[in-house]
């Protein structure tokens, strides 16, 4: 089954926008999400495949409308809930 993250070869996403400020993080919260993921991976709360899979399981509409670190946050939230860490 093809899911929405599997965009290789898909048409219609428009031109590549390279005009952005090349900063690693645009907001403080993005840096925190990045760091959180790194620490949770290191602590083996989940692994990289589980993280990727959590993002890939996002609702397609949510996937396409979320910014990069919003997707990460959604993945982290989901995994922590599924693993009973936050629930």
């Amino acid at each position: 089954m093809t899911r929405v993250h599997d965009v290789g070869g898909m048409h219609g996403f428009g031109p590549i926008d390279r005009d952005e400020v090349d900063e690693p993080f645009h907001h403080e919260w993005e840096a925190r999400v990045f760091a959180l993921n790194r620490l949770l991976l290191r602590a083996k709360v989940y692994n990289l495949d589980e993280f990727r899979h959590a993002i890939e399981r996002m609702d397609p509409v949510a996937y396409l409308s979320a910014s990069y670190y919003e997707k990460w946050f959604a993945g982290i939230e989901r995994l922590l809930a599924e693993k009973g860490v936050t629930s």
């Binding site: 996403f13 428009g14 031109p15 926008d17 005009d19 907001h27 403080e28 919260w29 925190r32 999400v33 959180l36 396409l64 409308s65 979320a66 910014s67 670190y69 919003e70 946050f73 982290i76 939230e77 922590l80 936050t86």
Partner: peptide
């Protein structure tokens, strides 16, 4: 940008709060 398919990103303030809550 007109070709930015950004739709409705959660506002940064909201994301900031949600991340702080999780942390």
């Amino acid at each position: 940008h007109e070709h930015d398919h950004a739709h409705d990103h959660a506002s940064s303030a909201t994301m900031s709060q949600r991340v702080a809550g999780l942390v």
